Simulated assay, not measured.
Amino acid sequence: MSELLFRTDAYLRLCTATVTAVDEQGLQFDRTVFYPNGGGQPGDSGQLLRQDGSTVVISNTVKGATADAVLHLPAEGSSLPQVGEEVTLVLDWDRRYAHMRYHTALHLLCKVVAAPVTGGQVAADKARLDFAVEMDALDKEAIEAGLNALVAAAQPVTARWVDEAELDANPELVKTMSVSPPRGTGTVRLIEVTGTDLQPCGGTHVHNTAEVGRLVVQKIRSEGKQNKRIIIAFAS
Rank of each mutant, 00 (worst) to 15 (best):
P81A: 11
H207L: 14
I143C: 03
G53Y: 06
P42A: 09
T88A: 08
D44T: 06
E192D: 15
A233K: 03
T8W: 06
E223F: 10
A105Q: 02
N170D: 10
W161M: 14
L48W: 07
C15Y: 09
W161D: 12
A17K: 01
R95H: 14
I220N: 00
G84N: 04
G213P: 00
G119S: 05
V57W: 13
I231S: 07
R13Q: 07
D163C: 12
G46K: 09
A145L: 14
L48Y: 09
D92A: 08
F34A: 01
Q199S: 08
Q121S: 11
N60A: 15
G84L: 06
L5R: 01
D30C: 05
P42C: 08
F34H: 03
T61Q: 03
A153S: 08
Q155M: 12
G184H: 06
A153D: 00
Y35D: 01
V117C: 03
L147E: 02
T158F: 13
A142W: 03
L91I: 06
A154R: 07
K111C: 13
T16W: 10
A142P: 04
A159P: 05
A21C: 11
G184Y: 04
M177T: 15
G203L: 01
M135Y: 14
A152G: 04
F29L: 13
F6C: 12
R214G: 08
T196Y: 05
W93G: 06
G40V: 09
Q47L: 12
D9W: 11
Q28W: 07
G146E: 01
A210T: 12
E144D: 05
G195N: 00
A124D: 14
A123F: 15
R101T: 11
T88D: 02
